[in-house]
Amino acid sequence: MLSVPVFWRMNKEKYKMIGKKCLDCGLVIFPNRKNCPSCDSQKLEEFGLSGKGKIYSDTIIRVAPDGFEAPYITALIKLEEGPMIVGEITGVDIEDVEKNPQGLVDKEVSITFRKIMLNENGLRVYGLKFLLE
């Protein structure tokens, strides 16, 4: 279980999609890094992402880690600006997703602010999830 300071340090990234843009090669980076993964440049500036993207692949989590409530849907999401991230999909019915062999692949999504988990001491961890457009 992650500690309170760890959650606090991640607040900025969890609440808003603020990443980095490489001033040398133009790559948009999310989540944040100190070096550009493409050209290794350290000349990076903050960059606000749109929070929109498309589902690349998804799966239903049925055995959840502590603090999470199964079942829920986790997906690989290709963001409009390029980065591929892991995110939770909310606002969809698991039984509908199960019926479709393609799952949610290629569905367009956008961010929404939700409760992510409850830690063992009752701390509510908030952050971004994704809703189908």
Partner: peptide
């Protein structure tokens, strides 16, 4: 409200 929604999340939206 859903299980991942509360006064804080609805306020943000």
């Amino acid at each position: 409200a859903g299980s991942d929604e509360d006064t804080i999340t609805m306020s943000v939206e």
